[in-house]
Computed example of a mutant assay.
Amino acid sequence: MKGRRALLMLALAGLLGLAAVLLASRWLLRQSAPSTVRIVVAAADVGLGQRLAPEMVALADWPGHSVPDGAQRELAGLAGRVLKSSVQRGEPVTAAKLAPAGTLGGLSALITEGKRAITVRVNDVVGVAGFALPGNFVDILVHAQGAGASDAAVSKIVLERILVLAVAQEVARDDTKPRVVNAVTLEVTPEQAERLDLARGVGTLSLVLRNQVDPRPAATAGATRFTVLGAAAGAPQLQPAPAATPRLAAAPARPERAPERYCIGVIDGNRSSKECL
């Protein structure tokens, strides 16, 4: 009898232990499994300025604790919207990456509200050897000649931290390979557009590539021949004096000859004399 009771107690203890293990494991699984939400992600790589088609987006599970700000929860209303920045496959589509509803595709969708796009002609030197790519910031340098003979040429930064919207007809910003093109489109304010248009009329333009995260202005007074070359550029050029022609030494003055006189001899008795005329 005592043996049966001992066996029953052992069996009951084993069942209770097994139940405790199962309950603990289920609790741990619930605690470790993160909650997920469904958000809109890109179903394919989409470039900036493109319109979203229904097959370009899809709903996907995303960890609830890391949902990005502005994430879209519904597919409805996204068809036809234009992207302001490119997205990769599986990347969330957020409100910050979408242009306002009704925006047409293309370059106009990339222009910030209140700004304008202006295109300037460049070459391999002016365009920083092709490294001025969409998304980069540049300064605009103008080199102008003086209006008169006495006015020195000047080189001056006229615009700073200007965003490059496009190079030629390309607006992709995920490329780092330099591209030599003949035109660059810049994003400027209306006032900056006026200054840039005037600057390219009075001189030649150059783009100066700058650090992406450097907002400090460059307070410069411009460069002239005098500031670059020093005092030698501003000093008048002295012409060498012509070599003096040697002069012949004056001949010594000859003494004047007395005028010739005519003389005659006079004999008076035993005296003689001489009279000259």
Results as ranks from 00 to 15, higher is better:
64 G>I: 00
64 G>F: 04
64 G>R: 06
64 G>W: 03
64 G>E: 07
64 G>Y: 05
65 H>F: 01
65 H>N: 05
65 H>T: 03
65 H>D: 07
66 S>T: 06
66 S>P: 00
67 V>S: 11
67 V>K: 13
67 V>N: 10
67 V>I: 14
68 P>V: 11
68 P>H: 10
68 P>W: 13
68 P>L: 12
68 P>N: 14
69 D>K: 10
69 D>V: 11
70 G>F: 03
70 G>I: 00
70 G>A: 00
70 G>N: 00
70 G>S: 04
70 G>C: 03
71 A>L: 03
71 A>D: 02
72 Q>E: 15
72 Q>L: 14
72 Q>M: 14
72 Q>F: 13
72 Q>W: 09
73 R>E: 13
73 R>F: 11
73 R>V: 07
73 R>W: 12
73 R>Q: 14
74 E>H: 03
74 E>P: 05
74 E>C: 06
74 E>Y: 09
74 E>N: 11
74 E>F: 06
74 E>L: 11
75 L>G: 02
75 L>Q: 11
75 L>R: 02
75 L>C: 08
75 L>M: 09
75 L>T: 06
76 A>Q: 14
77 G>N: 06
77 G>L: 09
77 G>W: 04
77 G>Y: 07
78 L>M: 12
78 L>E: 07
78 L>V: 09
79 A>M: 09
79 A>Y: 07
79 A>L: 06
79 A>W: 07
79 A>F: 04
80 G>A: 05
80 G>Q: 05
80 G>E: 10
80 G>K: 02
81 R>E: 12
81 R>G: 08
81 R>M: 15
81 R>Q: 09
82 V>K: 09
82 V>D: 05
82 V>M: 04
83 L>R: 08
83 L>I: 05
84 K>F: 04
84 K>L: 04
85 S>D: 07
85 S>P: 01
85 S>Q: 08
85 S>E: 03
85 S>R: 03
85 S>L: 03
86 S>V: 02
86 S>G: 13
86 S>I: 01
86 S>H: 04
87 V>G: 10
87 V>L: 10
88 Q>V: 13
89 R>T: 02
89 R>Q: 01
89 R>A: 05
89 R>I: 00
89 R>P: 01
89 R>F: 02
90 G>Q: 00
90 G>P: 01
90 G>R: 01
90 G>H: 00
90 G>A: 04
91 E>D: 14
92 P>Q: 04
92 P>I: 04
92 P>G: 04
93 V>Y: 13
93 V>C: 14
93 V>F: 14
93 V>L: 14
94 T>C: 08
94 T>G: 11
94 T>Q: 07
94 T>N: 07
94 T>K: 05
94 T>Y: 04
94 T>E: 02
94 T>W: 05
95 A>N: 12
95 A>D: 11
95 A>Q: 11
95 A>E: 12
95 A>P: 07
95 A>V: 14
96 A>E: 15
96 A>C: 15
96 A>I: 12
96 A>Y: 15
96 A>V: 13
97 K>T: 15
97 K>M: 15
97 K>D: 14
98 L>N: 02
98 L>V: 05
99 A>K: 11
99 A>R: 05
99 A>N: 06
99 A>S: 12
100 P>T: 05
100 P>L: 08
100 P>K: 07
